[in-house]
Design a protein around this nucleic acid. Structure first.
Length: 150
DNA sequence: GCCAACGTTGGC
DNA sequence: GCCAACGTTGGC
């Protein structure tokens, strides 16, 4: 079982929204590196940290589970959707997503500055300068370490 | 709101 | 295939 970290802006969709709906398609990923991980590596049962970005207190706020295999992102085909991509052909889809299922909220937010201060996490793309990946792998020891900070 | 960093686009 | 311009991300 693999581990991941996935970013979302809480003003768009936060951990409370996921808790409310239970399971939700993680749509709108429009970055090839992230797409490749979703499409080629994510498996149902994988666990992921829910990370709040572009907000008052950026950090890890919860845990969720990958609920489905990857499938084409329908928002790419919807001209009315803000994630519409005319270059994604339904017969040869460019963008993929998985559904995620709410796991639990952490008892507190593990903040970005806190994560950055841990030498144990130096290899995590999140804490590297200028990182913009919205989906990234978390190594087993990094996963355990982050949980130990809660 | 600012701006650094990065990815993508498109002219050549 | 290079690279400048542009758009986006995301912390602060």
């Amino acid at each position: 079982m693999a581990h991941w970290l996935m970013k979302s802006e809480p003003s768009e969709f936060g951990i409370d929204d996921l808790e409310a709906c239970g399971t939700e398609p993680w749509d709108g990923i429009r970055n090839y590196q992230a797409r490749n991980m979703i499409r080629d590596e994510m498996q149902p049962g994988d666990q992921a940290f829910f990370y709040h970005s572009s907000c008052e207190v950026p950090g890890i706020v919860g845990i969720m589970e990958v609920a489905t295999a990857a499938y084409p992102d329908p928002t790419a085909f919807d001209a009315a959707d803000r994630h519409f991509d005319p270059k994604s052909d339904p017969d040869n889809p460019r963008w993929f997503l998985v559904d995620v299922r709410f796991g639990r909220k952490l008892s507190r937010t593990i903040t970005l500055p806190e994560l950055k201060a841990c030498p144990e996490l130096a290899g995590l793309p999140l804490v590297r300068r200028g990182n913009r990946l919205s989906v990234m792998p978390v190594a087993p020891d990094e996963w355990e370490f982050i949980l130990s900070l809660e």
